[in-house]
Design a protein around this nucleic acid. Structure first.
Lengths: 343, 343
DNA sequence: CTGAAAGCGCTTACAG
DNA sequence: CTGAAAGCGCTTACAG
């Protein structure tokens, strides 16, 4: 590995000049600059990022906080892949890399295990990370407070946080849910139930309020027995559907707050001998891959998956370069009409 | 941020001793060690990783090479998420983090854009990465040669590479395919076709050879018109199925080399008025989530998804700590019998 | 068991 | 426009 010093010697300049060529090229004489650049290329010079970070006290990395190995082992972010792609590309455009922070502690290390928020914050300091992107893995909301207060730039996905350098991005869940319910109402349904996400989860709550709003606006009666709680996973959708079907007056349409639960509901309905959409109209939320392949294909509220990553990257970069607390980003959703609710 | 020097002063020892406490604790006097440890804890000391890496010439990060933004925009690794989880956990256990290398070049930087292999290798040097995990994103095979020859420890997923410090992990694709075909044969089918992956793709080729082997062993006739090429994606499965159905003597069973293509085939068969499994038996490969939710649920050859990550991590760690070229890891597969092929 | 010293490779005021 | 010097915070022989 060639170093700046070698280049300096070969060019007959000082290492300071070599450094300037790469960091403030405009301040160095054209001729000198070209010479340095040429030699650098010949030696395949790669600046040592550790030295750079040590000296500047900042790295070109953003940390990703994503707990994988505790609680809800089956949990899977509904569109992690799209999100990562968006995030990585947007970050790349700014020359930043994405560091997936280790999660299980290396007990030899100072400080607590990485599974806890302070562990992550510590890692952020050790590596001089530019910021943190937080993926909610269920019930991390309060841990996220720690991040938000730590002062390091961070943006959370799907959970509202606030702090000196903290913000979040989420879908317009209320509007999305409302559009789904309104669509059902327009199709003539009046007995519209909803299967919700877990209590306490913010997108889940917002979707419930969207459901309420659209029901009211459509002049439909809200009844408690038409709101049954799930946990976003498939099995809970099945269970919820069974409860709805057991009602004296079962709904003719169901809005499930996730595609997974919609699929679960679909399975339950099918098992009960109902035809979809003839006997029961169904709408989901997310527009994950499954939605389009299930039979009948699921009408659903699509989230802007790559948009999450892009917005997160943008917010992080803004905060790194000064901004003090970005406005939260609320991404629009889109109703994708397929076959599961008739038309 | 407290530094080692501050601790040293507070404890009345040298920074060398502080350093030893964390790196070779056994070499320092018990009492001194405890004192340093206590003060370190009080100050919430976090060793500066940049300084550490600069001094030791190695970081605690492994790079992930995963090209996302060129070619095949729709391409998605069939189980990236499970793979990442396995990889991250296994790496964490060794105290390593996973760095998702930026992919689009920051043109201000020396050297070529990151989209090319040398860009990645350069980044590896700059950051003193311990090694590289390579995810094949389609036609990167030859670029992977560059990595393999570079001397940095690397393990590729699903593409065979060899080099001073290179190895790979892949499923036993031939055996997996053979088990699927054998199962079909045992069910009484003799007209068994296959929809293959893209030519040149190693897992695809291996699955074809497994198909051949099982056909021969089952005493079934191999015919060219029963082998039609796809590209692992859904649409190609549909197209391939249509071609098979147009044959004078269409197959009664189809082994698709990916679940996505199997779903595509299923759609085509259904559109043609065939019942599954009555009129056509279908087996896929991968066992992605869709397989179990499609109707009828897909019989498929499951890959050990987290196993990929774990094996990759293990191989990387072995190579970092000395080993010169690990043996390739061939993961067993498992036939998951569901409804799409009768029983 | 411990300290002084050199070194890792860069950046950044400060002079000139 | 350029160089000398100090500094970033750690690790590691080398003495003692």
């Amino acid at each position: 590995m060639a170093t700046g010093r070698e280049i300096a010697e070969l060019c007959g300049v000082s290492v300071a000049t070599v450094s300037r060529v790469f960091n403030q090229p405009e301040t160095v004489n054209d001729e000198t600059r070209e010479r340095v650049l040429r030699v650098a290329r010949e030696l395949d010079y790669q600046p040592n990022e550790s030295a750079r970070a040590l000296s500047t006290k900042q790295s070109t990395m953003i940390g990703l906080v994503w707990d994988t190995d505790h609680r809800r082992p089956g949990w899977r972010h509904p569109y992690l892949q799209d999100l990562l792609i968006g995030l990585k590309s947007a970050l790349s455009a700014h020359g930043y890399h994405l560091l997936m922070l280790a999660t299980s502690g290396d007990s030899r290390e100072v400080g607590a295990s990485l599974a806890d928020p302070v562990g992550y914050v510590n890692m952020t300091r050790r590596h001089h990370l530019g910021g943190l992107v937080l993926i909610d893995s269920g019930s991390d909301a309060e841990a996220f407070e720690t991040f938000a207060q730590s002062g390091v730039p961070c943006v959370a996905l799907d959970v509202a946080i606030a702090g000196p350098k903290a913000t979040y991005v989420t879908s317009d869940n209320a509007a999305g849910a409302a559009s789904a319910v309104r669509h059902l109402a327009r199709l003539g349904h009046s007995r519209i139930a909803t299967i919700t996400g877990p209590p306490g989860n913010q997108p889940a709550e917002a979707r419930i309020s969207g459901y309420h709003k659209a029901m009211r606006e459509s002049g439909l009666r809200l009844r408690d027995d038409y709101v049954v709680a799930g946990d976003f996973y498939r099995a809970s959708g099945t269970a919820a559907m069974q409860r709805l079907l057991a009602l004296d007056e079962p709904p003719t349409a169901v809005f499930a707050a996730s595609d997974e639960m919609a699929v679960g509901a679909l399975l339950a309905a099918r098992a009960a001998g109902l035809r979809i959409p003839e006997d029961l109209a169904l709408v989901g939320f997310d527009d994950i891959e499954i939605a389009s392949v299930v039979d009948p294909a699921l009408t659903t509220v699509a989230q802007d998956k790559p948009g999450f990553g892009v917005a997160a990257a943008k917010a992080i970069m803004a905060m790194i370069t000064g901004a003090d607390r970005e406005e939260p980003v609320i991404l629009p959703t889109q109703l994708v009409v397929r076959d599961s609710c008739g038309s």
